[in-house]
Each structure stands twice: as structure tokens, then as C-alpha cells.
């Protein structure tokens, strides 16, 4: 694959929360992201709803259109099909959960239109 996979999605990766607590990536919960963002002076959690999922430029890529935050700003990102997003109340989800599990050993649900993902914005952005 020409695109390097982020190492931190590999099962067993150690993640440091904003309060210093260490957790494995597969053990993260929605509250961990919410509480970490509450502590952060710069970052704010937004709810980003999946509006559309289309094919990307290459066969293993998808373009995901999100509706971000209270303003419902439309943001598109192109990612590999195995790229996991964290869905509120559900956990890691990707467009191709089988491939995510195969590559990262990370259990994943299928990312669907309507899912609400954890995303970040800068607190100073308005």
C-alpha cells in the first residue's frame, strides 16, 4: 500500500488521555474523548454526522462527507476504507471493518450514513 497507516490504530497501542491516564486504543470510550477535550485549552469535541460515503480516487479510498458541529458545516475527507472513526456511544467504525480488523487487529463496526463521529475543532474557531 502506498499510504502509510497511522501506527496508533494498531490494537494494543498506548494512548495518553489529557489527564495523563494511559489506555489501549481498543479500550477507549466516548467519555475518554469528551473528558480529554474538556481539559484541553485548545481543542473542542464536535459531533460530525456522516452525510454521504462515495468512492474515492483509488479503489481502496472513500470520500466521506460530514456535517460538522452546531453550524452543520459540510466537510469532505478522503481516507482509506480501513481508516477508523470513533462513533459516539458505539466506538471504532470504518467503511470496511473487515480490512481494519485484518490490518490493525482493531474490532470495528461498519461506518454508515447517519453515524455521529467524534471530531475536533479549535476552541478559538468561531
Amino acid at each position: 500500500s502506498p499510504v502509510a497507516l497511522p501506527p496508533f490504530f494498531m490494537r494494543g497501542s498506548i494512548i495518553q488521555l489529557a489527564d495523563g491516564e494511559l489506555k489501549r486504543v481498543e479500550d477507549l470510550k466516548t467519555e475518554d474523548f469528551i473528558q480529554s477535550a474538556e481539559i484541553s485549552s485548545e481543542l473542542k469535541i464536535d459531533s460530525s454526522t456522516v452525510e454521504r460515503i462515495d468512492s474515492g480516487q483509488t479503489p481502496n479510498a472513500v470520500v466521506i462527507q460530514f456535517s460538522v458541529g452546531e453550524l452543520k458545516a459540510q466537510v469532505c475527507v478522503e481516507v482509506l476504507v480501513e481508516y477508523p472513526f470513533f462513533v459516539f456511544g458505539q466506538g471504532w467504525s470504518s467503511c470496511c471493518p473487515d480490512r481494519t480488523t485484518q490490518l490493525f487487529e482493531l474490532s470495528c463496526a461498519k461506518l454508515c450514513v447517519g453515524d455521529v463521529c467524534v471530531s475536533l475543532t479549535l476552541r478559538s474557531l468561531r
Partner: peptide
């Protein structure tokens, strides 16, 4: 063992400024 910050796992989706 590498330790990664929590925010590296979350996409940064900045809405385009419209004002």
C-alpha cells in the same frame, strides 16, 4: 513503547469560515 496523544486518533474537521 511509544505513547500517542488522544487527539491524534480524532479527525480535525474544521468548518470553513463563512463570514
Amino acid at each position: 513503547v511509544p505513547v500517542f496523544p488522544w487527539h491524534s486518533l480524532v479527525p480535525f474537521l474544521a468548518p470553513t469560515q463563512s463570514d
